[in-house]
Design a protein around this nucleic acid. Structure first.
Lengths: 110, 110
DNA sequence: GATTAATATCGTAATATTGCGATATAAAAA
DNA sequence: TTTTTATATCGCAATATTACGATATTAATC
């Protein structure tokens, strides 16, 4: 159906899946890297950095923003985007927790 | 087009995006959690654990396997799945690196 | 107020994902 | 060797994603 049965999973599982989904595209990873690379987060020129048309990048930015990975505020003529580092850190930590939580008394067989 | 222009991005960006994509679904997160929860990695009964039909779970397992997040070997009648913890750890580390790499002399404006 | 520049939205085409019933396969058990 | 059990694959329908041209919006600049 292309629609995931999110209601059957926990809030945490859905939340983490959604954040990872926002990051799960090379263009969006490149965008996050580019924004972080700028010392200040004045982030015009993303369009010139990537081999994608302006509407496509705008769409990727929207996805990153709506998932909370980045935030943007109006800055004169353009928009200033920053990575929400706290949010991204938390996502990474959540993923790491899954791995850590279960690591005790493992008996590898594969 | 629904097809990402992967050839324009770096190997690292494509690789990370692909791993994150494999994890970016609540059912697949639940599967990884369930496999890790078992002390031994004898992993039948996944079908009974999740509210999804057997072919659907088989498909999710295939995706996790082909991206290297889990590995499976034949174990009698069934199949024994394990999380490839090294691989998963590396994915998390790669994501963390992106965040760390750029953290020096930041000037937050958002 | 018209122009320019930066970004967003709309509409649409191509492709991918999700889910499952039906069916196939493969190994153990009877 | 038939049956049972566990898992995979096929085929399909519904929906989502990716990409972009055309166009709209918004704010600075002239």
């Amino acid at each position: 159906m292309g629609v995931s049965k999110s209601s059957f999973f926990t809030e945490e599982q859905n939340e983490l899946a959604s954040k990872l989904k926002a990051l799960a595209h090379p263009a969006r990873i490149a965008i996050v890297q580019y924004i972080l690379k700028q010392k200040k987060c004045i982030c015009t020129n993303i369009v010139e950095e990537l081999p994608l048309a302006q509407p496509t990048i705008s769409q990727h930015l929207k996805e990153l923003k709506s998932s909370g990975i980045i935030k943007g505020s109006i800055e004169g003529k353009g928009i200033c985007y920053c990575v929400d580092e706290e949010n991204l850190s938390k996502t990474i930590a959540n993923l790491q927790e899954i791995l850590n939580e279960m690591k005790l008394e493992k008996d590898d067989c594969c």
